[in-house]
Design a protein around this nucleic acid. Structure first.
Lengths: 248, 248
DNA sequence: CAGTGGTCTAGACCACATC
DNA sequence: ATGTGGTCTAGACCACTGG
């Protein structure tokens, strides 16, 4: 059986929360209740509720029952790193076009982000992303050389580079670091996104890496204002968010 | 002793990573090594490394040693919810001025975010934030009525509302949900931040709640482009980030 | 005060990586 | 084949919440 006990329990609790059976502000059963009901040890139950806490669905304090914080669904990691999967998960139609793919030496920033020796070759890609036919994002990505050939071979309207890499060589993104800021549209941005120069864009720069920590890509994605919102939830015990000044 | 075993181990490992003693891409000692070295059980060691994994510092795959992913420090939850603590942590001087504080009925959105009955009273605040004397952020916050009196009593240049609430009534933020997007500066934004109307701003809307899940405030913070960057790290096992279309 | 979550132990078996 | 992390058990004591 591929079944994992604590994920079963977590899924059942998640379902109860998302369906509204457990209202926001309501209390979860105690750990011992859950352990008895599922014939599992307390450790396993704690692993299940820790999963939900990491998703921001529930909170806890020593001595008091766990409480439901929200009942909205979250998106998976795959949806986060893949524009196509994200769009489809929301019922939108994702489009994509490679505008250029060229090999060139990495810039200093790209080399640093991809943990490459300065001047190593990367595959630089310019790509336009559409949502229901409308252009919403311009993507400028540098791929590490060990995936470059595979990316070059993809069709110009390839739905998802990350999906194709997974199906092809089995390369899967496992970690990501994302930098979010705002900037004014440059002339190329403006032309491709059909907005005026200087209009606000939301920029998401991110590096994706394999489970072993090997960087795959470093990307600069610029969204038309109003087209997307990023959402982050955190707590005093688990802090996935950071804020910085200036560039970087 | 107020010492917690797994936090001690986590702190030691974190120190080793941040100092560079364990290089990026390097492998951590095995769980049994660490357990022996610290005279702790394997469960305790796993709790320690789980802490670092949640901070995005290390990654793991079944069967292989854990690897170091990065060695940059993260900011605490407190720094995330508090402009003042964040600025001071970076060595900048944070300034602040209340421009207005008025009680009025909650808008539909505010009532929903703060889990209030429609039309309940809130304290609406307009506040300008400075970094080293320069205006960088405009904050429009709705405080729940049960903290309104306390916020009204604070001086106009109060450094940190959240710190003051903690010291005063012991109200501490424990959970947060943040929405990040870009938008064009309105006329009030432009005047206060000394930028042109229509220039790009990074908007962070967020709700803060107590450990019990009781909402404290709902805020719309707008940063001058280039003044701040938000950073998020995630992995296939822990996904704190979500992306959405349109408003909300 | 009883109940609850937070911490910790000392085992066990399995799936997967690495050599 | 050996080592490693992933999962699970069945206990234990403590700190804190709540009525």
């Amino acid at each position: 059986m591929g079944t994992v006990r604590y994920l079963e329990i977590a899924a059942a609790l998640r379902e109860a929360i998302l369906s509204g059976a457990l209202p926001v502000g309501g209390r979860l059963p105690s750990e011992s209740d859950l352990a008895a009901r599922w014939s599992a040890s307390r450790g396993t139950v704690r692993q299940a509720v820790a999963t939900l806490a990491a998703e921001g669905l529930i909170g806890s304090r020593q001595g008091a029952r766990r409480v439901v914080l929200r009942h909205e669904r979250r998106h998976s990691f795959a949806e986060l790193n893949s524009f196509a999967q994200w769009a489809e998960g929301l019922g939108h139609e994702a489009g994509s076009r490679f505008l250029s793919r060229t090999r060139r030496p990495a810039t200093a920033e790209e080399a640093a982000r991809l943990a490459l020796a300065p001047g190593s070759a990367v595959l630089a890609v310019l790509r336009l992303r559409l949502l229901d036919g409308e252009p919403v994002m311009v993507e400028r990505t540098a791929y590490a050389d060990w995936v470059a050939a595979e990316v070059e071979a993809m069709p110009v309207d390839c739905r998802s580079v990350m999906d194709s890499l997974a199906e092809g060589s089995g390369t899967v993104a496992h970690h990501g670091e994302h930098l979010l800021d705002a900037l004014a549209a440059g002339s190329e941005d403006a032309r491709l996104l059909r907005v005026r120069r200087g209009s606000p864009l939301l920029r998401q720069r991110h590096v994706s890496a394999t489970a072993a920590g090997r960087p795959i890509e470093w990307s600069d994605d610029r969204y038309r204002a109003g087209s997307v919102t990023f959402s982050v939830s955190n707590s005093a015990v688990a802090t996935p968010l950071e804020r910085r000044t200036g560039d970087r």
